[in-house]
Design a protein around this nucleic acid. Structure first.
Lengths: 142, 142
DNA sequence: ATATGTGTAATAGTGATATTTACACACAAA
DNA sequence: TTTGTGTGTAAATATCACTATTACACATAT
């Protein structure tokens, strides 16, 4: 899977915002830190805005801001805000409906996939943006 | 992500093999059940062979066979055998090394991603091909 | 020997992602 | 109110992995 890098980049963005103490940050500056273009950042930020994780200050001196406390933004929230696709893709074309296996395999395997995804998401729910920012602060001090 | 469907198809293949009681199955026949081409099936089977999950019987009357008991093939084994890419992709181009966030974000977020992936894999380790085949048999009887 | 079926390379088509350019719109500051 | 700043979004392009298809060499049972 050429998996999306949006989750990693979105985490980067939010962590950066968490470290400025409420000062707005321009998409341009974030783009420099991420090493990509400002348009890519704004595209991801658009999703984060929709999810209620960030908000934008227009005009001069403006930029992006966190819309909630960093301690209340879990990696799971970020993941859901920016990722479109399922972790597990299934058959591109529906399998043969007249074969015993083809007719049932998707239904039969689905519960296992649901459990696996739930386990992943539960784990992502345990880490917050505040923790990431805190760890970086610790590193900066040494 | 145009995510890979190989995991779902490979599970389909192995479940089909688990239901023939050791009779070889041609890639052509599996392809019909999956609703794709035989070459695609052979490509996936090549990976399953390398992983020691299946073996092939060449020549007339030949086909694919399980190389281990279905009860000893976990979905995790299948997943690892056929999936190439990481669940979580990171920045395509390395982030800015002179920014505090850019220089550290990947290291800092990595432990959380490792834990999430481990949780997913642990869950995939709990289901076997034998269970899938068994569930399909039950359904066929009703 | 012959037919059968696997194994693999080469090619092309598809879909999502990422990048870039361009421009309209909103707001702050003077 | 005017000007500059920065966001928001559309459109066009390039890239990458995946899937599908064609073709052919090789191994093996009969």
């Amino acid at each position: 899977m050429p998996t999306s890098t949006r989750f990693a980049v979105a985490s980067h963005i939010l962590t950066a915002l968490a470290m400025t103490d409420g000062r707005p940050v321009r998409s341009e500056d974030i783009a420099a830190s991420v090493n990509t273009s400002a348009v890519v950042i704004r595209g991801i930020m658009s999703r984060l805005n929709d999810a209620g994780l960030t908000r934008s200050q227009l005009g001069s001196g403006g930029g992006a801001l966190l819309a909630k406390a960093a301690a209340e933004i879990r990696l799971l929230d970020v993941y859901e805000a920016v990722e479109d696709t399922e972790i597990f893709a299934v058959h591109r074309t529906a399998p043969c409906t007249t074969c015993p296996v083809g007719a049932n395999i998707l239904d039969v395997i689905n519960p296992a996939l649901v459990r696996a995804r739930a386990a992943l998401e539960a784990e992502l729910g345990k880490t917050t943006i505040a923790e990431l920012a805190g760890t970086i602060r610790e590193r900066a001090e040494t």
